Simulated assay, not measured.
Amino acid sequence: MKNFDKLLVLVVLFLTSCSQNNTNFYNQKIGNPYYGGVYKVGDAYEIEDTLYFPKKDYNFEEIGVASWYGKKFHGKLTSNGERYDMYRMTAAHKTLPLPTKVKVTNLENNKSVILRVNDRGPFVKNRVIDVSMRAAERLGFKEEGTAKVIVRYFSEAPVYDKYGNLLTKKNNIINKVDFYSPQKKIHMKNYSLLIGSFQDKKNVENIKSKLEGFGGLSVEKNKVNGKILYKIILGPYKNIMFVNRIKNEVLKKGIKNTKILTFE
């Protein structure tokens, strides 16, 4: 009987150790669970014939269905280069900057949590946010799988380097190269959308405001016949069908006569 009790204690200790190792499997030495990520708003992107336009929105508020994701993604890279940990208070959203803090309230039981958005998703109809397993537990819908929630912007979230040290915005922009290489992206893409050329800088600012969230927007300043012209371009992109969809979305903003540019 004593031997059985000893064996039972060993099993419990082993399982406890496994659970702790699983929780901290990637940050034991660094001591910061959110190391190695970058700050990014991101370009427009397409998932299953739907276009998404990431952008900053300090007044963001959205009501819809929340779901949660767990073991299948545990330990994998998130969209901003951190690692997903189902035991942390994090979430995925389709358009908010990464990372961002949001307040999520379960409208069915009035429970609220503050979550760090560091991933993209969910890409399921009518779902507005995907939360971690721990967050689903705290919000009281882990067993049900989904719940009606309201998501509100809460604040910006800090970003840390690969050693777990806090990054300033300036340093973080530089370190974006470590995760998303602009050189590689440009090499793969061969289409851009010319919005137009303008003399009036107010027009330029107005159009930039309309196109906020499209991503990849650049303004080239050129001197033509003694006059300063500002050329506005979106891109580059790698898929002509995607560019045509962007062109249609730009038209919906009231911007006409855009032109697709092709690069060999």
Rank of each mutant, 00 (worst) to 15 (best):
T100K: 06
P54H: 10
D49Q: 13
I207Y: 13
N109I: 00
E137L: 05
Y163I: 07
E137I: 06
K184W: 05
L15Q: 07
F73M: 06
G121P: 03
F242E: 04
L77V: 08
K169W: 12
K227N: 14
D43I: 08
N190P: 09
N244S: 14
T258F: 04
F141A: 00
K94D: 05
K221F: 11
F60N: 01
T90P: 04
P99A: 00
L217P: 10
L211N: 05
Q28L: 12
E143Y: 10
L8C: 14
A135N: 00
L13I: 14
S155Q: 06
F263H: 13
D130L: 00
N222L: 15
D119I: 08
I150E: 09
D85Y: 09
N32E: 09
G70H: 01
N203W: 08
T78V: 09
L211C: 03
Y84V: 02
F214D: 03
S17F: 15
N239G: 09
V151E: 08
E48C: 06
G31Y: 02
E108P: 03
I173F: 13
Y163V: 08
K231I: 14
R88I: 05
K227W: 10
L7Q: 14
K55F: 08
I30V: 11
T258I: 02
F73W: 09
K259W: 12
N21D: 13
S155F: 08
C18Q: 15
G213T: 07
V151T: 07
R127G: 01
N171R: 13
G31D: 02
F214L: 01
Y58D: 15
N3W: 14
S67W: 01
R127S: 01
F73Q: 06
P158Q: 02
K76Y: 03
Y153F: 06
N22R: 12
R83Y: 12
S112Y: 05
Y153M: 01
L7D: 12
N126C: 03
V250W: 06
T90Y: 02
S67G: 04
N206V: 15
N110K: 12
D57I: 02
G42C: 05
G216L: 07
N22C: 08
L98Y: 09
F4K: 15
K2Q: 13
L211Y: 07
N27K: 10
Y87D: 13
N106T: 02
G36D: 02
G75T: 05
Y35S: 12
R245E: 15
A147L: 02
V9F: 15
K111M: 06
V131T: 03
Q28A: 11
E62F: 09
N24D: 12
N106H: 01
P182M: 04
E61K: 11
I207D: 08
N222E: 15
F263N: 12
R120I: 08
F123I: 00
P54A: 11
L10T: 14
Y39P: 09
Y84K: 02
V128A: 09
E46F: 04
I173C: 08
V149L: 01
I174G: 08
V159D: 07
N239R: 14
E108L: 06
I47R: 14
L234P: 05
